[in-house]
Design a protein around this nucleic acid. Structure first.
Lengths: 345, 345
DNA sequence: ATTAGCACTCGATGGTGATGAGTGCTAACA
DNA sequence: TGTTAGCACTCATCACCATCGAGTGCTAAT
């Protein structure tokens, strides 16, 4: 048996109805939905076929049908084919200053969750090749030194450390020149013993400061690649969908969203340029995160040049409005990348 | 009627039992609890009295009793009187480097939530008098400048801004000296037109840079005093307590915990040195946050010198283990303040 | 190929009675 | 006078059952 035009229409009608109501949808509903073009009996026959083919299921005899994972998958693939002709009407973002990308991302997640009524997830950028761009030492107290480290991609980190033998202003200036001339443009792997010993030699009596700085640099780069930042927002939106909000499921899902380390699998997907846009749709069991087997997850990877990559995701019920979500994410990607490139230029 | 020794014992027994089970507790249970020192009938009479006095309530006839807000209040006040003789066994904290207070606070909240099985809340420090301590300009690109601002209390903020007319190295050095000599030690209120025009005059051809810096400084200080940082952790712990986890309540509570602006009232309590330690216990309706009328909230204010203040809080069911929570918070305060003072010294 | 009609299924709803934990009250007791 | 045994009473919970109706599958007519 194969999908003819009518089956597709009916399947779509079922999915659309189920999206709205969240209730199993019966043959008469569909019959009315298509303006009685076909009678409920005809629909019933078709639905029987569709069920046999695995696109829809019956929660129990004498209930209507709901889409199966396979059904959603079909639907989503259809949308992907049709793509968008009309421009999506996502509200203009207030991405003005990217200087604090982190805070922009947080706001973005909040906005996204609010707009869609689903939960949003956003991973801070992974700086793939952490090249040092700039290091600055400053004295901020008699015995305290501020180390500012700027990485390629304008990721800034600071630390205040204690120094026993504080260099004076001029020495500090020299140290800065020394550090920058030796380290700039290097990745952490390229900072080897050779470089280190050379610097220490040049630093003379302040070799200990070199140690402090290197320790700090290592810390910065490690911290950033190890604990991947993931922000979530609108987690409690799941209470808007009865099929997700029974205690068992809600609890599990919310816990997963709270312990962001469990979400790694969602944002780990490298590249993912499968279908050009880097957008992926996980339906039910397809999701790499166990707690989301009753949800659908849509993720999109953004790339802001310089190997700075992250992921934005939407988590909602399987009956989420895929069309809207896909559109929103697509335009968001564009806006984000444009805004950043503009800034970068 | 007044509280005699026996009534107190029974009230405590009721509360203790209810804490464990979360079920209404009956007279026989209590009778067994006190090794049949009194019969269930006697207990019943006393319970009847306690109910009349408002310390306990019956959810319905023929159910046991549960403590009322007033009952909990009595219990908590008792604990406060007894205080702790034994040292609390909170696990030693890994507060090593305070240079990134924010991340320490987040970890602390997580730890606290995990240890207590309640939800934890922690507000980032409010820097009361934002004095500028240090400003540093650096060139990081042909047309981009890094502005690092350090406030009293070692709060560090950075920004990268575009500059049309980039000063050369020497001019930059002069600008740094200029800015620091003019601005250091000033609060934002003290930066008036007089100071600004003087600086601009001294800056000569780079007066525009002064504007950029001032804008940035204003931004930094404003951002920090306006959007008070509040982190929560372990919000989903509330699912461990049946009386909080019916959908209605859980949803409301979790939403409140997610929208941290709603928690302002909990951390706003200035000073709060009422009982020496700055610890406050809100039971049920006492709470300033509406969504928490079925919970108890314990907050403690920390102060890390220099007017740097924040709040740590625990949110749990009314039947929370007040003794443990109070102890934990007390030792935590001590540890935090000690650790910070040590670092500061 | 489509549709009207009908018997059938089964979850949801609501009512009923049994169960038992727990109470209040009374009377007996120390 | 304070304590306790005993008993009638209350009421949430649970299992059981009948009813209802949305929705199906199947058959026969169009």
């Amino acid at each position: 048996m194969e999908m003819d035009e009518r089956k597709i229409t009916i399947l779509k009608a079922i999915i659309k109805n189920y999206m709205d109501t969240g209730e199993p949808v019966g043959s008469r509903t569909i019959s009315k939905y298509v303006d009685n073009k076909w009678s409920s009996a005809t629909i019933r026959n078709e639905m029987s076929d569709l069920e046999e083919m695995g696109y829809i299921v019956q929660p129990h005899t004498s209930a209507g049908r709901i889409p199966s994972d396979k059904g959603y998958r079909f639907y989503v693939d259809q949308i992907e084919l049709e793509k968008d002709n009309e421009a999506a009407e996502v509200q203009e973002l207030m991405i003005q200053r990217i200087d604090r990308l982190e805070s922009v991302l947080k706001k973005l997640a909040k906005l996204l969750a609010h707009d869609t009524n689903y939960a949003a997830l956003i991973s801070g950028p992974r700086y793939q090749e952490n090249k040092l761009k700039f290091i600055q030492l400053s004295r901020v107290d008699t015995d305290k030194m501020l180390i500012v480290t700027v990485l390629e991609g304008n990721l800034i980190k600071n630390a205040i450390v204690q120094v026993v033998n504080m260099p004076d202003e001029e020495e500090l200036l020299n140290m800065n020149i020394l550090l920058n001339s030796n380290l700039n443009g290097l990745t952490i792997e390229e900072i080897n013993l050779d470089v280190i010993s050379r610097m220490k030699q040049q630093a003379g009596s302040h070799a200990d400061v070199v140690d402090l700085v290197l320790e700090q640099v290592a810390e910065v780069i490690r911290a950033d690649s190890e604990d991947l930042q993931i922000y979530t927002s609108g987690a409690t939106n799941i209470f808007k969908y009865p099929e997700l909000s029974d205690n068992q499921k809600a609890s599990e899902l919310l816990q997963t969203l709270e312990h962001t380390e469990l979400l790694k699998d969602l944002v780990d997907t490298d590249g993912g340029s499968e279908n050009g846009t880097g957008i992926q749709v996980y339906i039910g069991e397809e999701s790499p995160v166990r707690a989301m087997r009753d949800c659908s997850v849509v993720t999109a990877n953004y790339e802001l040049g310089e190997g700075i990559r992250g992921t934005i995701g939407i988590i909602g019920p399987k009956r989420m409005d895929y069309e809207k979500v896909l559109k929103t994410l697509r335009t968001l990607m564009t806006q984000l990348e444009t805004a950043f490139k503009k800034e970068e230029r």
